[in-house]
Structures are given as structure tokens and as C-alpha cells.
Design a protein around this nucleic acid. Sequence first.
DNA 1: TAGATTGTTAATCGATTAACAATC
DNA 2: TAGATTGTTAATCGATTAACAATC
Lengths: 215, 215
Amino acid sequence: MTKPKIAAAPSIRRLPSYLHIIKQLQREGDDYISGTVIAQELNLEPIQVRKDVALTGITGKPKKGYPISALITAIERFLCWNSIKDAVLVGAGNLGTALIGHREFQIHGLNIVAAFDRNPQKYGTAIHGVTVLPADTMEIQIRSFGVKIAILTVPSPSAQETADVLVRAGIEGIWNFTNVKLKVPDNVVVQKEDLSSGYAMLCVAMNVVREGRNG
Amino acid sequence: MTKPKIAAAPSIRRLPSYLHIIKQLQREGDDYISGTVIAQELNLEPIQVRKDVALTGITGKPKKGYPISALITAIERFLCWNSIKDAVLVGAGNLGTALIGHREFQIHGLNIVAAFDRNPQKYGTAIHGVTVLPADTMEIQIRSFGVKIAILTVPSPSAQETADVLVRAGIEGIWNFTNVKLKVPDNVVVQKEDLSSGYAMLCVAMNVVREGRNG
DNA sequence: TAGATTGTTAATCGATTAACAATC
DNA sequence: TAGATTGTTAATCGATTAACAATC
């Protein structure tokens, strides 16, 4: 089995923002949207939007653009956002709580069925309607749920050991919000979300602007 | 004034993870770290690590690697993480609360001096020691604080109007956690943090693995 | 029709990777 | 010394951008 190639990451990352714009236009009653308009709205080049949109397999109409409802369907299909995907969240702290409450993910088909935590005081409580279960029972519960996606929001020191349990439980994708580079088997996908890297970008960019001003 | 070029974004984004590894090694008592080791730890190419590290201006010793404490200083300087930077947070909801409580940012010099919210019930309360103030007073307060960084965690519909106020208040950098593309003057930096794009990456990658398995 | 927009093919640009001499 | 590692210079790779014919 040759390892299949993942489609261009920058394009995948841009598609959700297209989706956001397009849905907005749909609410305003439009039937078609041109790549030019999307580009304008997001400060991108029209050709880039056309290339990205082409990935989803949809074709547009010269002079009119892309049919909005079909484009939404195509993007959601491409991102696998057209079906409900169950997930568990591990580490019901501040960040975990925020992610459970984040409505946008639900819209994209993410359904958090349970949260796990080590703090007994949280056992049985509900966070935005999601029950917190004991971390000890994680492996067996995930197996019985048949869940394949885990959102990891535990403290960094527990990250790797938690990931090991998740892998044993049959998890296929880990959305990793810790700053730990997880070691997992090849067949398990890890998406690392690094808030610090975004902060680094902000700091450097602000410094560049400042230097530009001061000469 | 020619607009200065921002250093390679992918490199900037990788530096925080280097910093994390290096600090760990320092805690274990090491004095030197080689690019090879950092690369191994993060699943990168050694040459890439050397190139990135070179950006910070530090030089290593053949056979030994880079002096750890000097390397930490160099990276932190490069990212402007060597000084305390005051910031305000706007929108004290779930995500805002999580970010205020995120210790890592403090380590990187981010000091949240106040939070703003529209909910009167929150006025005067403290979130992880940070006082919540009325959103109405935002402009004048930010001016009097002299704060230049704002973390934006308001609901999407309020994002642009809030950004407008921030700009009027003299904010120079906005860390934008909404899914709205903000329109701001050229001299204001916006770093957009898009959690949905990370989720899109996870979904597509999981699908690729699944297709690989099923043929 | 005229003109805006698509989609394709080619060119450019920039980041990653390779090669290798220098060096401790 | 021998060998691991750095730092520089060149090659490769992939993403972005440009050009333009097709078309509604």
C-alpha cells in the first residue's frame, strides 16, 4: 500500500473561509458567487480561489460564477463535513470547555459525545450538555462508543500517555491542542493546533511594522 | 517607506516548538543541543532546523550543536518574547476565559491586563485574576492603559465593529479568533487564528488514511 | 454582442532539501 | 585523529501567480 498524498495543505486551510463567505452570501439570497468576489472578500488572488475551488470538483459558469448551493455541498463533501462525526474530548479544563461550547464545530458535523477528566469532582457533571466521565474508563468507553476522533486538551505532561490510551482504544484521529509532539502509529492522524505559533506570527509581524515606522 | 518583508512564516511558526524542546533539554541539564536532535524530536529534517535557527542569528559549534541558554535567548529575542507585552481580551466567553487562563502565553511575555464584555453580570468579576470591564468603556480604557495588543474572542457578528473600536483606541495588533476577515488600516496587524481550518486538515487527512486502507 | 468569468497551461516565486567544505 | 555537526551554496520541489483561449 503506497501512502496516498494529502491534497495541498494551504488550499485545504483556505476552504473553510470560503465556505463562511459563501454561506453568508446565500443567506443574503444570492444564487451564484464568483471567485472574484470571494477573493475580494478575503484579500486573495482570484486565480487562487479558482484553483482551490477546482479541488472540490465543482465547475462554474463563465460570467456568473459558481452555483452557491452546489458549491457549499462540494466544499463540505471535500472536507467530509457533510456527515456527523462523533468525537470525545479529553481534558475538560478551560480550553476543553471552550471547544465543547464552540458552535461552529457542530455546524461542521463534529459531535462531541463525551468528555473525560481526571478530576472526580467533575464526574457526572455536564459541560454544555456533554457529560464528563472518569479518565480511567476512557479506553473501554471509547471502544463501546466506537468513536474515532479525539480532541486532546489535557495538560502537556499527560499528553503522550493519554495519546497512548487513545490509540489503544481505536482512535484514528487526534486533534492535539497540547504543545507536545505526539508519537503515534502511522495509521493514526494527528492534527497539531499550536496557539503559540500564531502568537509568534503576531509578535514578529508587529515588530516588522514597528521597525518600518521607526526606520 | 518601502514595506518591509516579513520573515518566512513557516519558519516563524516552527520556532516555538523548537523553544519547547530546547527548554525541556535545559531542564534535564544539557548545555548544548544539536539541530539533529531537535529535528528527530519534531520529525523534521536537520537542515530545516539549522536554517530556521540561523534566522535568530545564533551560531553553533561543529560536533556539539547550539549552546542551549544562548539559543533560548536568541529565539525569544527573535519572536519578541523577551519582554512583557500588555494586552486586552475582548469577549469574555468560553474561549476568552480559556485564553486568559492559558499559562503558556504568560511565559512568552503576554500579560492580559483587562477583559471586556457586554454582559453586565460579568462587570467587575475576575477571570483567572483578570477583571472584566464594560465593553462600552473599551476605547477610553485601552487608551489610558496604552495597550497595543488585543485578543478578539467576541461572537462573529460583533467582530468587525469591535475591531473598529480597537483601531480607534490605538491597538496595533489584533489576535483574531473569530472567523471574520477583519478590515483594518495597513498599520494594524491582524493574526487570524482559524480553528476550523485545523479541523478541516484533520478531516481530510483521516479520509486519506481511510481511503488508503480501503483501496 | 461585449465583457466578465472560468479553467487550463505555462511561468514565477519561495520554501525545502541536497551537497559538501569547514571545523571542533 | 576520526567523525559528527555546522553553515553555505546550489538544486529541487511545490505553491502561487500569470497569460489566455473558451464561453455564457
